[in-house]
């Protein structure tokens, strides 16, 4: 990412990180008890993340979310609840949106994963990213990567004609009429505590109607 944080105090931060590393790794344990349980058996796995192949050896307990955030340092995907109840961890797996907190990394052998870091093309934002800025579809920004990934998948779901809980007469298979209520329902797996919902709807609508124009 070439973008620099406006709050980035890079000089001072580097200084202290340097001293921290010098401290090294003194451990408190196993001073009072030897480790008796075996270490976790690592599992080899290959995934493609944002177009890049990743060969990993991983404790099978590691969720896809923790793999992204703690091992691959792709921290754009957020941990809001860690239990599939907020949507902040939404990523695209083979084009479908899922909660990365409720799936294990090893279950995605061969999967193509797109995170928020993989949506823009170089310095060109994805239209959904640009629309979220234009319509102010966020405040704190923590749910935002999940919202945007969700919204990107939503447009594909609409194109495919997939119904939602508010689609009138599900039994009639036909093109979905895109209403605000359709967008609201389809975005309801992403909680925004700042309350940016109306702006999120506006952003999704704008991208949807522009892509159809």
């Amino acid at each position: 990412m070439s973008d620099k944080s406006p709050g980035d105090l890079s000089v001072s931060r580097r200084e202290f990180v340097g001293t921290a590393v010098a401290g090294g790794a003194a451990t408190v344990l196993p001073a009072y008890g030897q480790v008796t349980e075996p270490s976790p058996e690592l599992v080899a796995c290959t995934l493609t993340i944002n177009g890049q192949r990743e060969d990993i050896q991983v404790d099978p307990r590691v969720t896809l979310l923790d793999l992204l955030r703690e091992r691959l340092h792709l921290t754009g995907t957020k941990k809001g609840c860690d239990h599939g109840q907020c949507g902040a961890c939404t990523v695209l797996v083979d084009g479908k949106r899922i909660n990365s907190c409720l799936t294990l990394a090893v279950m995605h052998e061969g999967s193509k994963i797109t995170t928020i870091e993989g949506l823009a093309e170089g310095s060109n934002l994805h239209p959904m990213q640009a629309a979220f800025i234009e319509f102010d579809g966020f405040q704190c920004g923590y749910c935002t990567p999940g919202q945007i990934c969700s919204a990107v998948a939503l447009l594909d779901e609409l194109k495919a004609g997939a119904p939602s809980a508010v689609t009138p007469n599900v039994a009639e298979v036909r093109a979905i009429e895109v209403t605000d209520d359709e967008i609201r329902e389809r975005m309801s797996g992403n909680i925004c505590r700042c309350g940016a919902y109306p702006n999120i709807v506006a952003a999704v609508r704008a991208v949807q109607s522009r892509s159809n124009a």
Binding site: M1, D3, S5, P6, R13, V17, A20, V21, G23, G24, A25, R69, H73, L74, T75, G76, T77, K78, K79, T115, I116, E117, L119, A120, L125, Q129, A130, F132, I133, F138, G141, Y142, T144, P145, I148
Partner: peptide
């Protein structure tokens, strides 16, 4: 905005601190 929509804004837990 740009940092937040690209996932580039580091929140507390996301600062990369070695070791």
């Amino acid at each position: 905005g740009r940092l937040k929509v690209t996932g580039g804004a580091p929140y507390a837990y996301e600062h990369q601190v070695p070791n």
